[in-house]
């Protein structure tokens, strides 16, 4: 699959005519100029199950790219490839090429530990460590040796909590357990924890699915602010969320990347029938 292959489909589809449902070629614009990460022909297998089928796309600098699609379509699996979180699953195999700033992250010379510090991750369920709020944020900088003194560490903790919009709520109780916070606060704590190791890219796997609408709105605002300093890839089940926070959207269906492009185009004028079905609620 490459850019040229997609062009005819795009041109033969000018006036609202959609690509047929049976077609699994990616339509839209998977590639951009000056990307941060490039993925080419990525396949993922869980044992015999082919979970991601030949996906190619780019992730740009300082953009929020959202992955949408019905449950089990492989969007979470895909973003877990981007910082090699899938390495922790015994049966999982990844094929293809994923480059970060031109370096293949699956190359033998790359260690996953600095990679994961560079490509941070926030998970679906808030998962603060059973430690104090301070220790939660300080844990990453400490293991990576980012702070040389207690003052530096304090500063990293404070900046991270400020960036995550949590500082004012917790500054007087940094020694209390992180698990005692509310769900939304816990998720912002997890974001602060991810920010603390100064990553360049943050992967978010359905970060708001366990939160109420108010907490969700706060996280969405936060994502919008973080965009100025970080590149963010977010998996979400909420199409409203995708349209609110992301600049580009990718629609996955049963392991195939069906359509990708600027968010407003995906949601207003999708080119693939499956995308149309999903965003109008006929499927999924």
């Amino acid at each position: 699959m490459n850019n040229e292959a997609n062009q005819p489909a795009k041109r033969s589809n000018p006036g609202g005519l959609r690509v047929d449902r049976e077609n699994r070629e990616t339509v839209g614009e998977p590639f951009i100029e000056d990307p941060r990460m490039t993925c080419r022909n990525v396949d993922v297998f869980y044992g015999d199950k082919h979970a991601i089928i030949n996906v190619s796309l780019d992730i740009g600098k300082n953009e929020v790219i959202s992955m949408i699609g019905p449950s089990g379509c492989g969007k979470s699996t895909f973003i877990r490839c981007l910082n090699r979180m899938n390495d922790t699953i015994d049966t999982c195999r990844v094929r293809g090429q994923i480059k970060l700033d031109g370096r293949d992250i699956y190359d033998e010379s790359i260690d996953v530990v600095p990679l994961r510090a560079q490509v941070g991750m926030v998970f679906q369920k808030p998962n603060p460590f059973p430690k104090s709020i301070y220790q939660n944020v300080a844990y990453g900088p400490r293991i990576h040796g980012l702070a040389q003194s207690k003052e530096e560490l304090d500063e990293i903790v404070e900046t991270s909590l400020r960036k995550a919009g949590l500082w004012d709520e917790v500054k007087d109780r940094l020694d209390q357990p992180g698990t005692a916070l509310s769900g939304g606060q816990q998720q912002r704590l997890c974001i602060a924890r991810a920010i603390a190791v100064s990553p360049e890219i943050i992967l978010m796997d359905e970060p708001c699915s366990a939160l109420d609408p108010i907490a969700t709105a706060r996280i969405e605002n936060l994502i919008d602010e973080l965009r100025h300093n970080y590149t963010i890839a977010i998996v979400t089940h909420s199409m409203q969320q995708a349209s609110r926070v992301s600049q580009r959207t990718a629609y996955f269906h049963l392991g195939d990347l069906i359509e990708i492009g600027p968010t407003e185009i995906i949601f207003t004028n999708p080119k693939h029938q499956l995308t149309e079905d999903y965003i109008t609620g006929r499927f999924g």
Partner: peptide, 11 residues
Amino acid sequence: VLRDGAYGLGA
């Protein structure tokens, strides 16, 4: 998820 959280930080 706790292990994932630590691995995700590069532990």
